[in-house]
Amino acid sequence: MNPKTKSRLGWTVVTVLVLGYSLFPVAAIFATSFKTPGDLGNQTFLPTSWTWQNYEMIFVGDAQGLFLSALRNSIGIALIATFIAVVLATLCAYAIARLDFPGKRIILGAALAVSIFPVISVVTPLFNLWRTIGLYDTWPGLIIPYLSLTLPISIWTLSAFFRQIPWDLEQAAQVDGATQWQAFRKAIVPLAAPGVFTTAILAFFIAWNDFVYGISLTSTEAARPVPAALAFFTGASQFEEPTGAISAAAIVVTIPVVVLVLLFQRRIVSGLTQGAVKG
């Protein structure tokens, strides 16, 4: 065996190992989601017969009221929280990258401080405040606290992105006769857009992942997001276990994440390493 094939073989083994590491638990819950109730207790990896019944339960069966509303809440709340965070962060990061003003460090420092904040510490006062002003168990009641998760990472990631934009291009374009707005749109927007988009993905992941706010600040299908709803699934009676339904729902909410990762892995990696902050 020559060294080249040997190294190729080695890399294949390593790749398989990494793939196994990353995907095995997902594969396990995927397999579980196709098990019949009888198979759930049989201690095997694969179902003995594959069934869609767990998916039927959450989409058209008993659990649909719980799951579909949670899915809608999760998508809506996470998207809105992401959108607001990205808009605010874009303005903020633009100022940080482009302008010189006192307090810049304070803003970045605040973003950092907020990102290390234990969510559980703010949940009780928020719960108390929300119930007095009527935001408890509503969409805004989750969107607002979600900003504490999505804003810091957005500011950091975008500041890093914006610093790398050659803003001189804007001037160059203006010299070539474009108006300021044209110059901004033609020269800067195409450069900034990928960064904004990447930031949006990262912020969405974080909002999508939230659990503590989700279980503490909601109590019905009106606003309960998916991670919180997963803990609410039930079997056929209140004493029977919902393993199948949970697994199916878990797979459903993992699909968007996997799709985003598949499509944008390069961007996500660069965004993560530039911002160097995780919510």
Binding site: R131, Y136, A231, F232
Partner: peptide, 23 residues
């Protein structure tokens, strides 16, 4: 109808919180 959680203490938790919230 609106569904409460699976186990009784969790149901109590949800109800108590909402009741205390004057819902």
């Amino acid at each position: 109808t609106s569904l409460l959680p699976n186990d009784a203490p969790a149901q109590r938790e949800q109800l108590a919180r909402r009741l205390a919230a004057g819902d």
